[in-house]
Computed example of a mutant assay.
Amino acid sequence: MGTKQLKELKGLQKENDRLRRAVSDLTLDKLILSEAAREND
Rank of each mutant, 00 (worst) to 15 (best):
M1V: 14
G2E: 00
T3M: 15
T3E: 15
K4I: 12
K4V: 06
Q5S: 13
L6A: 10
L6N: 11
K7G: 01
K7H: 01
K7C: 03
E8R: 14
E8C: 07
L9I: 05
K10T: 00
G11W: 00
G11D: 02
G11S: 06
G11L: 07
G11Y: 00
L12Y: 04
L12C: 07
Q13N: 14
Q13R: 15
K14R: 04
E15R: 03
N16A: 13
N16D: 09
N16G: 08
D17I: 12
D17Y: 09
D17H: 11
R18H: 02
R18L: 11
L19Y: 00
R20F: 03
R20N: 04
R21T: 03
R21W: 11
R21V: 04
R21N: 08
A22H: 13
V23N: 12
V23W: 08
S24H: 08
S24Q: 11
S24W: 10
D25W: 12
L26A: 07
L26C: 06
L26P: 08
T27R: 13
L28T: 11
L28P: 07
D29F: 08
D29A: 11
D29Q: 15
D29H: 08
K30T: 06
K30N: 07
K30W: 06
K30D: 07
K30G: 06
K30F: 10
L31R: 07
I32K: 00
L33V: 07
S34A: 12
S34Q: 12
E35V: 05
E35D: 09
E35A: 13
A36F: 09
A36C: 11
A37E: 05
A37H: 10
A37R: 12
A37I: 12
R38D: 03
R38P: 05
R38E: 04
E39G: 09
E39S: 11
E39M: 14
E39C: 10
E39R: 13
N40C: 10
N40V: 13
N40D: 14
D41P: 10
